[in-house]
Design a protein around this nucleic acid. Sequence first.
DNA 1: GATGAATGAGTTTTCATTCAT
DNA 2: TATGAATGAAAACTCATTCAT
Lengths: 195, 195, 195, 195
Amino acid sequence: MTRTKPAEQRRAALLAAGRALFGAKGIAATSLDDITQRAGVSKGLFYLYFPSKEDLVLALQEQFSHEFAARMRAAAESRADWTARLDACVGAAFECYRELHDLHEVMFRHAHAVRPGSEAGPEPAPAAATRVIRDLFAAGTAAGAFDVADPESTAVLCCASMHAFDQGFRGRRGPDDVRLIQAARQLFRRAAGVT
Amino acid sequence: MTRTKPAEQRRAALLAAGRALFGAKGIAATSLDDITQRAGVSKGLFYLYFPSKEDLVLALQEQFSHEFAARMRAAAESRADWTARLDACVGAAFECYRELHDLHEVMFRHAHAVRPGSEAGPEPAPAAATRVIRDLFAAGTAAGAFDVADPESTAVLCCASMHAFDQGFRGRRGPDDVRLIQAARQLFRRAAGVT
Amino acid sequence: MTRTKPAEQRRAALLAAGRALFGAKGIAATSLDDITQRAGVSKGLFYLYFPSKEDLVLALQEQFSHEFAARMRAAAESRADWTARLDACVGAAFECYRELHDLHEVMFRHAHAVRPGSEAGPEPAPAAATRVIRDLFAAGTAAGAFDVADPESTAVLCCASMHAFDQGFRGRRGPDDVRLIQAARQLFRRAAGVT
Amino acid sequence: MTRTKPAEQRRAALLAAGRALFGAKGIAATSLDDITQRAGVSKGLFYLYFPSKEDLVLALQEQFSHEFAARMRAAAESRADWTARLDACVGAAFECYRELHDLHEVMFRHAHAVRPGSEAGPEPAPAAATRVIRDLFAAGTAAGAFDVADPESTAVLCCASMHAFDQGFRGRRGPDDVRLIQAARQLFRRAAGVT
DNA sequence: GATGAATGAGTTTTCATTCAT
DNA sequence: TATGAATGAAAACTCATTCAT
């Protein structure tokens, strides 16, 4: 069994296993045994790549956070018109949320115990995504297409509103996807001050 | 010791202990021993009032959800003008969030393991608050003061945006409270279509 | 199985199991599973009585230390003549060593990691026994029967010399018991300055 | 990296690393990773030089035992007078103890599990030192300077008494070094029957 | 009703040792 | 010779839950 594999592959397998299990059962209900078994490695190997279970969670947070932000940015940049950019952003966010929806817990989990030693602690997971929206609001306003008095605060609020894309947030009888995304587009437009 | 006390008082003590500890240390890090000790009762007594630890979490969710919704509703009803109602709602939500902010985990926790037997599962915690906003949007629109095409979807989004009130959500360098609440008021007005 | 028993009995069972196993296999090689299994209790129960495995070791140390000192003192007090007292002390120590010899590791183990928080740490295990010898030297000298310039230092050295009673200390071809105890008696007499 | 070095140098590096780490943290708390890292070699290399961690401990025991004995012997031989020899021996032992004091655990550790296959097991660590004292007592007695009835037993006892040189053995309020070494000299003289 | 002693499966983590390269 | 990735058994410790009193 002791077959050596590239470190990146091992790490990726561990991240993938963590992602799948955290999504399916939640972080607390997932044991390291589950993770290593699913990744097809020994328990000891895990600790060659991550100092603790908590660090796997953090690594996943970062991974998703970047992916989320990157996709929103790409979507925004694919359009020329400011309003279209906004719409594209919402669309991308919605898609992302859907694909990652089972990782809600991982992404938005609060770090309860601030690590001793780490002065500032990690940036909150959605920060990268928020910056994309903020920049869009700011640039659009500068270009005269939007009218956002406080792009940063508004971006934080708008980003937070995307929590609604998560199934668990809405009631079982809440609005369906189509209605929700339409409403989101309208909300973002209005937030941007598009007339 | 074996002094009988009113059931409601016992239950309340347990809820209060759970609230304090979950808020301070997180759900996973709080043991039943912690809870019963803080409540000043025996461990066995807990199970006379709640079937499991999970059910205490659920009971707290419901408690907060109702309190949250009730305060928003009261704030809205204290004003006559539609826009003022909306602003009051935002203000109340912000205050509530601050008071309960350490209970973020309790309120917005996803129920991962759907209880076998319970067909539908419990309503998501923020549902009650969402209804308050929805009704406000709908009534305001009917009265001609607002212009909300889909009050339900918009309410879900707006309610979700309140996550931004949580300190942990914004970055350490994110907007401060004053800016945030102003931005929130503006966002809600625009969402409502107030011109 | 859940039969409640007096706390003292439980504690004693745990101490007895620890003593037997530490003696037979050494501290490091004895697991908590071993201990609780031998004591006929569950693993969780152990932690109701001792905060950690280390604390069981410490409790045993104290137990033996007291027993050891008490037996030496009793032996010394059973005689009137000063030299006879010394001899009796040596005899008692020898017997004790033999009975407890497998617990050498427990008794004389060095605490490597000084507990953070505990300012001074526990007294070394043989301290109580040393005091018995010291008092004997001092009193005998005061009575004119002995001539010990520094009773404390001499007692520490004499007490340490008893390590030789341990089988593991002497070589396989070292002196046998009879010779050793005679030599010990002579050594103690000479140490005391008995002419 | 894969640079071949003289075997003796490798072995010495491993012994030195073990010595430093065992002394600082104790045997149990020192991992092979620690040792090989400190020695600057790979983990696999360790097993080319020692069959197991336990054997490193044993090798260190032997090393110290010999060093200890050699220094005592050298000290004794540097003097002509019998009493001076005894005093020099005590002085050398004291010095040695101080330098090696953190290795107490290594030197005096009992081998609990008798190796299957090894018929007799290794000689106890202090045996070599004991022989030095024994020979001194015997030769001095033969020369008419000492009067030791049983040199072997007395040597074993005297050697054991040196445990008192270890800080951990005496209480925190035990005798200081000067008093202790004076008392030791006196004890050894009296043990030798010097008048 | 109320207690809290007792349980034991489950958790994270460590580490001596192996072996393909 | 030398490496270090990989193993997996075992360790200490936790805690939700039960139940005899």
